[in-house]
């Protein structure tokens, strides 16, 4: 057990006429080494939720435990928590500020109080992990392409070597190629470091392929918390929330509605091909 969210409620502008409930009694657990997809429509409270995981926002009610300790206890060192739980914000490239890429990635580890040598070693490893070549290390981060900037910014958090890596819509605004590359390198990062990954997204496609477990949020509450295949069984409900299921799962539902005897528990194209072949008697 690494993170436990316990009856968390968060209100923006509490006690004023502008009060709005962003999170309403949310509880769940994140285990070590999991790859979790957090899905929800715009305004469902995903971003608000993940900002509690590293103590940036303080809950109105409820608590968050990291390895069994209440992080809002008062004597918990939030700076230390942030070295364990790395949070990559939306459009993280907007936070780049240093004169070259390498220095920017060193910012996080140096803030942890590491020696310069150790920080540089970590920065080098992190940049390699996200697939940035040595040629770019001493360029200004502002001269890179959008996708490269995004990778450098993610490396900036990776270099802190967090045990839990939380990414808030890391693929927003990237082209399909950039999106696939980024998500693939996330999977590599997890395989190599063994960290827990929480991927926030509103795209079912992104999450279905990589996550072992999906949390679906709607109007500030968690509606489903299950394996991808089981979550996608709530086809109609997900459509109602404006989320839907991956294209290929949707296609299987339509085939079934058209009278073909195929299973709808399918989330990849390869599985779909096998399933259709089997249904047509070509197994």
């Amino acid at each position: 057990m690494s993170i436990l969210v316990n009856h968390l409620t968060y209100k923006y502008n509490p006690g004023t006429p502008m009060e709005s409930v962003a999170l309403n009694d949310v509880s769940f657990e994140i285990g070590d080494g999991e790859f979790i997809g957090l899905i929800g429509h715009t305004g469902s409270g995903k971003s608000t939720l993940v900002q509690h995981l590293n103590g940036i926002l303080k809950p109105t009610e409820g608590s968050v435990y990291y390895n069994g300790r209440d992080v809002f206890d008062g004597d918990y060192d939030l700076k230390e928590l942030r070295s364990h739980v790395g949070l990559v914000f939306q459009y993280p490239e907007h936070q780049l500020f240093e004169s070259d890429v390498f220095k920017d990635v060193c910012f996080g580890p140096l803030n942890l109080g590491l020696s310069k040598k150790e920080a540089e070693l970590r920065a080098y490893k992190a940049l390699k992990l996200v697939g940035i070549e040595d040629d770019f290390f001493y360029q200004s981060p502002f001269d890179l392409s959008g996708g490269q900037k995004r990778r450098v910014a993610i490396a900036g958090v990776l270099a802190m070597e967090p045990d839990v890596l939380v990414l808030d819509e890391p693929t927003a605004g990237l082209d399909p190629r950039g999106r696939d590359d980024l998500l693939d390198s996330l999977k590599t990062v997890q395989a190599e470091t063994g960290c827990t990954v929480v991927l926030v997204s509103h795209s079912m496609e992104d999450v279905a392929r990589y996550a072992d477990r999906i949390l679906v949020m709607n109007n500030g509450t968690i509606v489903y918390d299950d394996k991808p295949v089981s979550v996608f069984r709530h086809y109609d409900k997900l459509k109602e929330m404006g989320l839907g299921v991956p294209e290929i799962t949707g296609a299987m539902y339509r085939l079934r509605a058209a009278g073909f005897n195929v299973s709808t528990d399918v989330i990849t194209v390869d599985d779909a091909v096998n399933e259709i072949m089997a249904a047509m008697g070509h197994a």
Binding site: Q51, I56, H94, Q95, G108, V157
Partner: peptide
Amino acid sequence: DKIMKAQMARGAD
């Protein structure tokens, strides 16, 4: 506000 939070996540004080 956003940038402050993002840098705090990177350990800025």
